[in-house]
Write a protein that binds this DNA or RNA. Structure first.
Lengths: 240, 240
DNA sequence: AAGTGGTCTAGACCACGCA
DNA sequence: GCGTGGTCTAGACCACTTG
């Protein structure tokens, strides 16, 4: 178990989520009222509400004033790949035979283009890593990573073959806090054609990822270039 | 002004957001501490925290325990088209000369495929609306909408030429509460080729939208088919 | 009218960053 | 050790849905 549950409201959230996933409370039904949950978990109402708010954000329930919390059909919202999820996490979920090939690994000085994307000085070195993701024997994704060396002083090819994220968070103790993601379509470049099994495809899905640390400084830029047939992005949105 | 600000925490959130947007507090700076803000706004700490939480979710600030709330560079996060945004809202923002052509309008009985997507009975009629979106004279997007007639008893071609969302929320008083969005790439169909200016493009970005009402029942399914060169999706994500 | 969720308060203690 | 944000409490009143 990776997820720690030090806090009361997290435990409550996990417990309720478990109930919903296991189908002990059925979609369409109402959750017990907040006051009832206060008694069940021996917690104050604000604490219960915090747990319910997280469940709502994750698409487990929907709250209606004066009525209650409606349980949603979680099975409908399969594979919410929204948010920050690394390839390793995704491929684990999908159960595919996935493989990563580190195609390029080294240090570079920022090109003018990179300098405008990541906010770094002229002489701030960057790690440049190209990784090819193979699923069921086909080269599907090309990941181009750029990391600020000042923040990540140490990196090896072996680490890149596993998960860079795991290394950064586990070994280096860095806290990745938020990211901006941008999805567009592009013509495949020469590079794409060389590294990927593009067959007859005439376009590439480009996911640009701007990753920030806890102190709100950007330290990583990733360009994920996907063969279009294997790409899928799911998002759960609430109207404000 | 569309947004109502009945609540204290919303007013505080709006006020702080305004300060940040106007640059009165600069990116990288810290917001006043929560206790200071309590005094400034004569509010309790939980109320201030609720306002700050919303600012954090919208990407205005980033909170660090023991340190404070760092102001982010909002101008970096341009066009957050994430969430539920209708074509009319988007085209207004973009300032493009946009036009909508209602290509098809009528009532149908659900095909087996539609029945499995929207949960409706065999004899529940659906509105079927095809709309073509023209930007700068080019046919870029094909929107295929299916709405449950039991929920939307009345609809006209004229309404579809404007915004269906505005009509549903304004006139009918329906509350759209959440949606699941799915982005994939497909080969263009015969339909796509007929209705859109596809030129040499060999793929189509398909955005499937499953829209739910306040009572957690699905009432609309929309398939938005975009020419790939004009497509862009932006998402702001936080690591949990 | 009763019960639900939504907002707000005042106060307490904890975990973390920094000097 | 101080000040920061993070969690939790108990109680109050409001807004909304339903019988």
């Amino acid at each position: 178990m990776v997820i720690k549950m030090r806090n009361k409201y997290m435990k409550i959230q996990e417990d309720l989520a478990e109930h919903i996933r296991k189908g002990r409370i059925k979609p369409g039904d109402l959750l017990p009222s907040e006051n009832e949950l206060c008694e069940t978990y021996s917690a104050s109402r604000e604490t219960i509400r915090k747990a319910l708010k997280m469940l709502a954000e994750d698409g487990y329930i929907h709250k209606v004033q004066g009525k209650g919390s409606i349980v949603l059909d979680v099975s409908k919202f399969d594979f919410p790949i929204s948010g920050l999820v690394s390839f390793k996490e995704v491929s684990k979920k999908m159960g595919h035979r996935a493989k990563t090939i580190v195609q390029q690994f080294g240090k570079i000085l920022p090109t003018p283009e990179l300098k405008s994307i990541i906010q770094v000085a002229e002489d701030d070195e960057l790690w440049e890593v190209y990784r090819i993701r193979e699923i069921d024997g086909e080269k599907i994704i090309l990941d181009k990573d750029y990391l600020v060396k000042k923040v990540v002083p140490y990196l090896t090819k072996e680490i890149c073959e596993n998960s860079i994220y795991e290394f950064l968070e586990g070994e280096l103790g860095l806290t990745i806090s938020f990211a901006k993601k941008e999805i567009t379509m592009e013509e495949p470049t020469e590079e794409d054609r060389n590294f990927l099994d593009l067959d007859g495809f005439h376009s590439i899905v480009v996911v640009k990822n701007f990753v920030y640390l806890d102190d709100a400084s950007m330290f990583q830029y990733t360009e994920s270039r996907h063969r279009p047939d294997k790409f899928r992005f799911v998002d759960f949105a609430r109207r404000k």
